[in-house]
Design a protein around this nucleic acid. Structure first.
Length: 370
DNA sequence: ATGTGC
């Protein structure tokens, strides 16, 4: 059996944890894997790395997509003026997003041609972990023509939503794992067809949920939205003769993507360029974790109070009433988004279009909703 | 990541 050598898209000065590279190598050695690439935000996950793409032939591995099938980033422009942001007022008005949507989720999904599921009560909710909805200003335009083609207007704020398929994707992976553990599915078999059908449903559910999160957020502020882009970073999809398993990897073959920094740093809108096959048709999906969740709590609790974390270095507000989550998701727990972007630029696979600056990040109002 | 786990 031939083993492919994984490529890591990162300069020598970028810190990549040894365990993440070992996970990349082990995963690259799985049966049927023909291509493995670590993106600059590569970090260790639970057995397999995050910030990576694996191309297989003949087989698919549901665990390489993970439980949050269809997780991704959606960007919307708003009619809110960037010139005089009413940050305090908006921060007060942003509530009620944690609980179930009061509207008819089944009808919302049906309008998009989607069948109902047992998890539709979570549609339009952000969820936990690194998920968020963030109001941002367009700090700098770095590629005028591309920005203009996307109708980006620096005088208006934008809304970035990071969320996925909540309990739905998790249930799909669990059903697979109960029968096959961490085993693959052979393409063309009924089991593979069944998984891919459910996977595609979870993808579209996640996209619909991001749109609904944005609508609920905008409704709190009385804002009007218009969609700019929506991209998946957890998925398995065919490309040429390979099946690309993206686990925390943005597509490089579907136009512009947003790469979020930490909640205290900028995000970048970038456009893929050059030989994107060299990076597995993929780009980084974020800054990447530097510290595990437990490390972040242990290191930061002694030196930072929650009050220090709800206002960031860039002067943005973070709405996060879950104390532990505030530490786990602190900007210091993440690598530098500028380094990640520089690595992609040096590899010749992406160039920046706009720099986005956080104004208000909504994580959670707490377990009781609001 | 998780309508989260005893």
């Amino acid at each position: 059996m031939t083993t492919v050598s994984p490529r890591v898209i990162a300069s020598a000065t970028s810190w990549i944890e040894g365990e993440a590279v070992r996970q990349l190598e082990r995963t690259a050695a799985l049966e049927g894997v023909r291509m493995a690439v670590g993106l600059p935000d590569l970090h260790a996950g639970k057995g397999h790395p995050i910030g990576a793409v694996f191309g297989t032939e003949g087989l698919i591995y549901p665990f390489l997509v993970g439980g949050d099938i269809g997780c991704g980033m959606a960007l919307f422009s708003t009619d809110l003026s960037a010139r005089k942001p009413k940050r305090d007022r908006w921060t007060t008005k942003l509530r009620g997003l944690d609980g179930p949507w009061e509207g008819d989720a089944g009808a919302y999904l049906a309008e998009r041609g989607l069948a109902p599921s047992d998890f539709d009560g979570s549609l339009g909710t952000i969820g936990g972990g690194n998920h968020f909805a963030e109001l941002q200003s367009i700090d700098a335009i770095l590629d005028e023509p591309v920005a203009a083609a996307l109708n980006l207007d620096p005088s208006r704020l934008v809304l970035l939503v990071h969320s996925g398929s909540r309990g739905l994707g998790e249930s799909i992976l669990r059903a697979h794992t109960e029968r096959f553990r961490d085993g693959p599915l052979a393409l063309g078999t009924p089991d593979a067809d069944d998984y891919l059908r459910r996977h595609d449903h979870a993808m579209q559910w996640a996209r619909a949920s991001r749109a609904l999160i944005a609508e609920r957020f905008a409704e709190c502020l009385g804002a009007v939205l218009s969609p700019v882009l929506d991209i998946f970073h957890n998925s398995v999809t065919p490309r040429d003769q390979l099946w690309l398993h993206r686990k925390g990897a943005a597509p490089a073959d579907q136009g512009p993507v947003v790469i979020p920094g930490s909640r205290g740093h900028h995000s970048y809108l970038v456009v893929p360029q050059g030989d994107v096959a060299s990076s597995g048709f993929s780009l980084a999906h974020g800054a990447g974790r530097k510290w595990t969740r437990s490390d972040a709590r242990a290191r930061l609790k002694p030196r930072l109070r929650p009050e220090d974390l709800v206002r960031t270095e860039l002067g943005s507000d973070v709405i996060c009433e879950d104390r532990d989550l505030l530490y786990e998701e602190a900007p210091d727990a993440y690598k530098s988004i500028d380094r990640v972007l520089a690595d992609l630029q040096e590899a010749g696979v992406a160039r920046p279009v706009a720099r986005l600056r956080p104004l208000i990040t909504y994580k959670t109002r707490g377990r009781d909703g609001d």
